[in-house]
Design a protein around this nucleic acid. Sequence first.
DNA 1: TATACTAAGACTAGAATAGTCTCATATCCA
DNA 2: TGGATATGAGACTATTCTAGTCTTAGTATA
Lengths: 156, 156
Amino acid sequence: MFKLSKKADYGLIAVKHLAMHRQQHACSANEIAEEYGISATLMAKVLQKLAHHSLVVAKHGSSGGYQLAKEPGQISALDVISAIDGPVLITSCVTNHGNCDATERCSVKEPLRRVNESILNVLSTVTISQMSEEPHEPALVALSAPARSGSHMSST
Amino acid sequence: MFKLSKKADYGLIAVKHLAMHRQQHACSANEIAEEYGISATLMAKVLQKLAHHSLVVAKHGSSGGYQLAKEPGQISALDVISAIDGPVLITSCVTNHGNCDATERCSVKEPLRRVNESILNVLSTVTISQMSEEPHEPALVALSAPARSGSHMSST
DNA sequence: TATACTAAGACTAGAATAGTCTCATATCCA
DNA sequence: TGGATATGAGACTATTCTAGTCTTAGTATA
């Protein structure tokens, strides 16, 4: 369909949790998982991926856990999502070199590429610190930002 | 992940095709499928769904086929996508009444709802006639449009 | 009436996702 | 030093979703 994976969802929850507890000790995967009623092993996997992409730092050992690697204002929703699910591409055709088998004939490729860019733009505009604000704030969505930044696709 | 289904993709292709041939006779599912190298039965299914949602009209009998039900400028990408895949919801939490099992605790629901709205906004801005324009046009993407229209979620 | 088409929906196969389990490694503290 | 508690990594399973097929029925035209 057109849906965020649950893992990406969990990733956002975890990062937001860490953002709200960053003054304190590191949070373990167990701790976070319990708080939101999510499987602990699954949450651990998600956090591992985030650590891999340097969004969080892991601290081994007892009383270890995870902490944010950057300021919450420096982490976008796109960072988290693409760390977990890979690059955000609304169709398989829109990759740089990527070609569906009907590249020649496919007539919607280019328009969709542009739609994809707009979506990346939205996702990269939303930061974790914005997500932690109360909803009555305008918060979102600098939709008026320049459409072509082109710097997002890079992850993976 | 975060991907358009192939069926939705095919739907866009079909609608665009019909937009470009609307002066002429009705196009059969077979005809369109062949042109783009897609399974004919699958294309038929896709067109049926589009007909169901009154985006195209079906003409039975020999020399029948499909024709657009509206002007290409009146049909948005969102119309086509949600006709085929159902409403566009980036998480299962963001439905009107919809609640994940952790509604109380889930902290990302509201921010994601707002992201979802922005994406709907982008998709509803792109019309089939825009998709038929040549890429060197500015075409896309009235990103500066007001972020909160809220009128989209209704389809299905 | 025969033919060429759509309508509808059950069905199957395969891929993607969610989630589990196990073992290894690092750190802290008694 | 050794046990407890963390993460790291990757194989594994189960379930759900998607793509695609097939079959039967209905409808318009010639």
